[in-house]
Structures are given as C-alpha cells and as structure tokens.
Nucleic acid binder design. Sequence first.
DNA 1: ACCTGTCAAGTCTGG
DNA 2: CCAGACTTGACAGGT
Length: 322
Amino acid sequence: MLVRFGFVAMSMQVKNASPSKTMTASAFEKIADREAALRKLVRLAQENLQNTKRLLYHCIGHDIRFYRFSSRLLPLAGHDYIEGLDYFSLLKDDFYQVGEVVRKHQIRTGFHPDHFTVLNSPRCDVVASSIASLDRHVKMLEAMELDQSHKCNIHIGGSYNNKEKAGRNFINQFSLLDRRLQSYLCLENDDKTFTVAETLAIAEEVGAPFVLDIHHHRCNHEGDLLTDYWPRIVTTWKDEPFPPKVHLSSPRSESQMRAHADYVHLDDAVELLRGAAEVTDRLDVMIEAKRKDEALFRLIKELASHPAVTVMDQASIRWKES
DNA sequence: ACCTGTCAAGTCTGG
DNA sequence: CCAGACTTGACAGGT
C-alpha cells in the first residue's frame, strides 16, 4: 500500500506565512472609513492566498502532495458587515495562481469548513448560513479551477435529542443542495455525535465519499470494530480519482482526550495503516497535529524503522505487512 | 519581544 | 431561559 501524508493549512517551518490572517468584527466596526476597512480585508485575503502559494511550494519542496487549505482565507466572509464585497472578482488572479500550482504539481487539496457549518440544524438561519459557507468554499475551488476531486469535508451536525431524525434531516438537506455543491462534498465522523457507523451509512445513502477520522472514532464509537467498516469506507471512494483519505491524530492527554496532540503517536499510525492495508493499495493520510508539517516529518522518520515500512520520499511510504 | 485575554461561530450542558 | 464550555489561530492590548 502506497501512503501519502499531508498536513493542514499552516507550516511550523515556513515563517510569516499564515494563510488565515483576519480582522475581528469589532475591529472592522471601529474603522470609520468603511471603504478603507474593506480594502484592508481584501489585502489580508490576498496575503492569505499568496501565503497559501508559498506553503504549496514548501509542500512541493518536501514531496508533500496532500494539503488542506485554511478555511479562513477570506476574512469575515459571510458576515453582514461586508455585504457587497466581492472577494472573487477582486482576487480572481490570486485564486487562479494558487490553483495553477496545485494543478501543475498534482497536489490533492480540499477544505474543511468549520464546525459551525451544520446542514441538519432545525434552525433555518443556521442551515442558510451553512449552505452559503459551502457555496463559498466551492466558489474558491472553482476560482482555483480545481474540480470535484478536491473536496469540502463536513460533519453531519447536531443530534437535537433524536440522532436518527437528525441524520434523516441531514440526508434531506443534502438532497436539496445543488448537484454542483453535492459533488464537492465528503463526510467525516465526529468526536461527539455521529459515529463511523452512522456517518458511513449516511455517506452511502447520499453517495458522498466518507472520511475516516481515527481520533474521532476513538472518542466516539459504540464498541464497533473498524475492521467491519473498512471495505465499505473504501467503496465510497471507488468513483473518485484520488484514493481514500483519512485523518490521523493522537489525543493530547488522558485528561484532554479530544484535543490534538503536538505530534502523532507512532502506534496510532501503525494501527491505522494495518487496517487500511487490508482493503486498499493506496491511502492519503491527513495529519491533524498541533505541530502541523513538523509532525508529518517526524512521523515519517519514526515509521522508517518499522519493519512493514519502506520510505519512498519525504512524505510518503510503502506499507508491506508480513 | 513577549504575554494574556478576547474573538468568532453553533451545540450542548447545567443551573 | 441564560450563561458557560468547547475549539482554534490570530488579533488586541498590556508590559
């Protein structure tokens, strides 16, 4: 099994390259000259896109072909204050430049809209802003000229005291989305509410790929063994150009089980790779650790001494279990 | 240069 | 019904 590793949004090695620079709503309010404030927002967004490009070059230089964009590229996006501001026409070229690097170097990218994107909420305003957020994320991918193989990954949402009903509500809301949005989505199990079993069943029903988060699974499962789900997980990716993707992280501590640790524990990685190797010959692993790309490089280094591992380059390995 | 507190969002819990 | 916890990186304000 060929395994490629990726990281999220920012680098611990590339300095002054935040792709998430922003302005608070209250700071925006305090600027008397609204036009000047809007210009500053556009400048921040432009910096975020240019830094994203720098981060992509960093990836390329280290053989990394899997990267998740920051979901905060556009400051105050969706906020009432900036109504009428068209980031997309103003930053057309910046978006295009990012996409150009991605396509030229065949990097797998995507977004993870924040957990306030809740499609199954009983509140109409929450659903509406969630759809608007998804639309914005897809617009960014389109502005980069990246097709549906680059996904927006979301969770199912809240349970509202009736998880089964909440799941059905998600399916209903999903079915009401434009096909354009649907085709860019993939679904991930979360650490509190929707387990692998529940999320996978929903993903199968709506025809979206399923992203396994091994850490969330550990926080939120019902004694179910992952081995029961691996074949079905892989099947949800069968029509996709890229291989199945999974999220890998370790708990910060026993008292902070849900929080992400600085680095990934080798054992967690090995456990994941063992399971995946039974069902797929390609896997993309998104590292979700505080130390970002440093955690990726450290994990590769640690994996190198495992008997089942052959290191291919700085960011990928071959797993060959005895 | 560094440190601490605040900011955004939605859900859930506890009072 | 309301306040606070949860989460995260960056802002904001203090020293």
